[in-house]
């Protein structure tokens, strides 16, 4: 029974990791920029949802609007920040990204103060219980939303012109432009989609933990990085699998009584091992 209960926890935690990491991986795949500020968007998403929820009283409107606004902000970040430093050495966009993330976090602190805001919603999903095994409505909500998003993403990437254009850009953006793909728009779109996903993840975590606060993105920014390293940089399939694998490692190792490290240490331990022995991750290919 404990195993099944833990499996549900893995799916829920993994869903969150996947939602964050897929966007990060998508952006890395196209621009080769490690977009640390992605975690800033995640926090923004949570705050936006909370604020919109307070005004409208409707969680779904809050979730969708927050995703759209965050998506636009992500695209603007590309257009007005990254675009100017992409031709510099790779360390430059990375530093810019860290700077953006810190600025965003401090902005949230100035606007909202260093407090934890409760974010509770009531959703019409029944509590599923069978003996000791249960799925809470919030867990169900996370699983359903992640499921819908992943299916939608798979469809967009594999069955639409936009998706093919994105894949071509990730392979060779100059050549993609030569066959007629508007690469500027496509890259902006990747930022839009990735940022919208991060905002959804931030909102779901805010609701699940019933708290939204300015530094909630701190651990997340590193965790997402771990997932992307495990999956292989730029591989979306890798990020999805690695997100669930990391969640499984965390949940089952912590449940095992003999394990003495804190939960967040597991990911980093695994990442260090991967960087030493399998630096291209599970599905990554060698950088040219």
């Amino acid at each position: 029974m404990e195993f099944w209960q833990n499996s549900i926890n893995v799916l829920v935690l993994g869903s969150i990791y996947v939602l964050i990491a897929v966007g990060l991986s998508m952006i890395y795949g196209i621009l080769r920029v490690l977009h640390i500020a992605h975690a800033g968007i995640y926090t923004l998403g949570a705050f936006l949802s909370l604020s919109i929820m307070e005004v409208t009283g409707n969680f779904w409107i809050a979730l969708i609007l927050s995703a759209i606004i965050s998506g636009f902000l992500g695209a603007l970040m590309y257009r007005y920040v990254y675009k100017f430093v992409l031709k510099e050495e790779r360390i430059v966009p990375l530093i810019v990204s860290v700077g953006l993330f810190i600025t965003m976090q401090d902005l949230y602190r100035i606007i909202y103060g260093p407090y934890k805001y409760p974010f509770s919603i009531s959703i019409p999903i029944p509590y599923i219980r069978a003996g000791n095994f249960y799925i809470s409505p919030l867990q169900m909500l996370i699983l359903i939303i992640t499921g819908i998003i992943l299916i939608g993403l798979y469809f967009v990437l594999n069955k639409t012109r936009i998706g093919v254009g994105l894949k071509a850009c990730a392979n060779d953006s100059q050549m993609a432009a030569a066959v007629g793909v508007n690469t500027k728009l496509t890259i902006a779109l990747a930022f839009f989609m990735g940022s919208a996903l991060a905002a959804v993840a931030g909102t779901l975590v805010g609701v699940y933990d019933n708290s939204v606060y300015p530094t909630m993105g701190s651990t997340v920014s590193y965790k997402a990085f771990v997932v992307v390293v495990l999956g292989g940089f730029g591989s979306l399939k890798g990020s999805v699998i690695a997100g669930f694998l990391l969640a499984a490692a965390e949940v089952f190792l912590v449940a095992w009584k003999g394990f003495f490290l804190p939960r967040d240490a597991i990911g980093f331990l695994v990442m260090i091992l991967f960087l030493i022995f399998l630096p291209n991750g599970l599905f990554g290919r060698k950088e040219r």
């Binding site: 254009g165 894949k167 060779d172 066959v179 793909v181």
Partner: peptide, 16 residues
């Protein structure tokens, strides 16, 4: 486009 199939490469050629 090395990571894509021959089919996808050809369709990308006809992108417009």
């Amino acid at each position: 486009f090395r990571d894509l199939t021959v089919k996808e490469n050809l369709f990308l050629g006809a992108y417009r």
